[in-house]
Design a protein around this nucleic acid. Structure first.
Lengths: 151, 151
DNA sequence: CAAACAATAGTCAAAGATGGTCAGAGAGGT
DNA sequence: ACCTCTCTGACCATCTTTGACTATTGTTTG
């Protein structure tokens, strides 16, 4: 945890813990953490993705900003359907993990359950060509999502 | 006990005696013991395996690490190993269900967990030829059994 | 108002920083 | 000699950091 990305991620998440939404100036954050501005894009692209449950907007030009919001879904059924849509029929290992963490955070799964499922979705568990693997993983994830509904 | 592998193994285990989990930088350890970095992989692959009760994670790139965790040994490990033997590399849907029920009865899984896993092992979730299906099911079940050990 | 200028943010590819793999050399025991 | 375990290094994979170039929006100027 001594790489800048993790530090900036922690900083932003700590704020998001209290506020529901934050608005930053890319340049300011970059200065505060003494890094190049595009580093901020990297943080956002890797740590504040849809899979992880964030919604990001931005505007360029004078008075520009980057706004990060935690996606709030009131009804858990909706969340399941939405994740189902995002998953589609192609899913990487990383995205699967992100979704599972999300489901744990939304208390639709326990940590144990998520770990079990994750272990089944990792590449070692799906011995087949990469492309088939992703399709299979998506298929299994869809099953999980449907199963959660009737638990 | 004069080879580096044993020395590094002892060093790491001594730390793991106090801490439940350690996180190292491959390069640092290699330097400390004056060996090539890949030596560390050798140590981990031969001395910190799942069979020996360790769980290892790692990350590459800036801020990378290797994390080693001791798995808590349950008395039920025998049962898990036994089931693992029975399962082998061929498993029918019915047999899978029976084993899962057994694991629930032995309180190694909750009912919910078993249902989730079962849904992933049913034929609808494994779209492939029957024979491959049974092999895949066995493979996934083996993963489950291993994973339970570190839950 | 259009053109120039200023102020932001985005993209992308290259470089940097780690860890992983694997085949072959080396060492120790039988 | 032969076998097994250890050690090494070249090459690979993945994640992070940087910076040059691009795109968009707001402001000023002719």
């Amino acid at each position: 945890m001594q790489n800048i990305t993790d530090i900036i991620e922690a900083y932003l998440k700590q704020i998001l813990h209290d506020e529901k939404k934050i608005e930053i100036k890319r340049q300011e954050i970059a200065e505060r953490f003494d890094c190049v501005p595009s580093q901020i894009n990297y943080v956002i692209n890797t740590r504040f993705t849809v899979e992880k449950g964030y919604f990001v907007e931005s505007k360029r030009g004078g008075g520009g900003y980057i706004r990060i919001q935690k996606i709030v879904i009131l009804d858990s059924h909706d969340l399941l359907d939405e994740v189902s849509q995002w998953v589609g029929n192609d899913l990487t290992e990383q995205a699967a993990e992100d979704y599972l963490i999300r489901l744990v955070n939304e208390q639709l799964l326990t940590r144990r359950e998520a770990i079990l499922i994750q272990s089944l979705l990792q590449k070692e568990s799906l011995p087949m060509a990469l492309e088939d693997q992703r399709r299979m993983r998506a298929h299994l994830m869809q099953t999980v999502l449907q199963t959660i509904k009737r638990l």
